[in-house]
Amino acid sequence: MIEVTQGNSPIVLGLPHTGTDIPSDVSACLNDTGRAMADTDWHIHQLYSDLGLDLTRVRTPIHRYVIDVNRAPDDVSLYPGLNTTGLCPLTDFDGDAIYHDGKEPDDREIARRKALYHQPYHAALAAELERVRDKYGVAILYDCHSIRSVIPYLFDDTLPDFNIGTNSSRSCAASVEKSVHTRCRAATSYSCVLNGRFKGGFTTRHYGRPEENIHAIQMELAQSTYLDETPPWIYREDKAARLRPILYRILNDLSELIYERQLR
């Protein structure tokens, strides 16, 4: 069920939110808002495909409304005091309910979804990070995300194009953070921020252990950089053609840090 593509690179791409599969029993409980799946990281797996870097990819096809694999299994809030969504979300990013009244998942159902979907994703991700670290002595987890650029329920104003999260510089070496931030700042037609509204989800915070030679960084792209931000969420080849070379350079720079032994 979890899609794993093994590459020959020190970088592992995490793809937790591109899936659109919703099992029929869950779909029956969702209202029209939930079935619209507006909060999908639309086309992210396509955007990062065939970049020519032979990257390992770990992706779940299950939609985040079923269970969000980028949330902690105990559902602790990643951003205390701010609006957000949980392990098995009850609302969308606009704060609107996604379930029919009385059809929300109970503790037993949440435990079932964790066993079926959350645990297998992280087992696969952990295995690939260990495999890559065994080969290179170090692994970099690059967690791929995107979100609509304007969501008043979650953040003020318009989101920057590149939102880099390193758990306030704790999830990776300084050279990893600097490499990505420098490359994004050099792309002068785009805006960027480091550890702004998005500092990294559970995946970045959990796996980012520089002292154990696993470095993690989250990239949250504003969806305006590569698609139309309204249904049917059309992938814009013209926009993607401008963005993809920058993504290539970001990931290539990270690979070079390891190949040239400059990661510190």
Rank of each mutant, 00 (worst) to 15 (best):
P160D: 01
D161C: 06
D161Y: 00
D161S: 08
D161F: 02
F162D: 00
F162C: 03
F162K: 00
N163W: 01
N163I: 02
I164N: 00
I164H: 02
I164E: 04
I164S: 03
I164P: 01
G165C: 11
G165Q: 08
T166Q: 08
N167D: 15
N167K: 12
S168V: 12
S168Q: 14
S168D: 15
S168N: 15
S169R: 15
S169P: 06
R170I: 10
R170Y: 11
R170E: 15
R170P: 04
S171F: 06
C172H: 09
C172A: 15
C172Q: 08
A173T: 12
A173E: 13
A174Y: 12
A174V: 13
S175Q: 12
V176T: 11
E177T: 10
E177C: 11
E177Q: 15
K178M: 11
K178I: 08
K178Q: 14
S179K: 09
S179Y: 02
S179P: 00
V180N: 05
V180Y: 02
H181Q: 11
H181M: 12
H181P: 02
T182F: 07
R183L: 13
C184L: 08
C184K: 03
C184F: 06
R185N: 09
R185E: 10
R185S: 09
R185W: 06
A186D: 13
A186K: 12
A187S: 06
A187K: 01
A187E: 03
T188L: 07
T188Y: 06
T188K: 07
S189R: 04
S189M: 04
Y190C: 01
Y190W: 02
S191M: 04
S191G: 06
S191I: 05
C192V: 02
C192L: 00
V193A: 07
V193S: 07
V193Q: 07
V193M: 05
V193H: 03
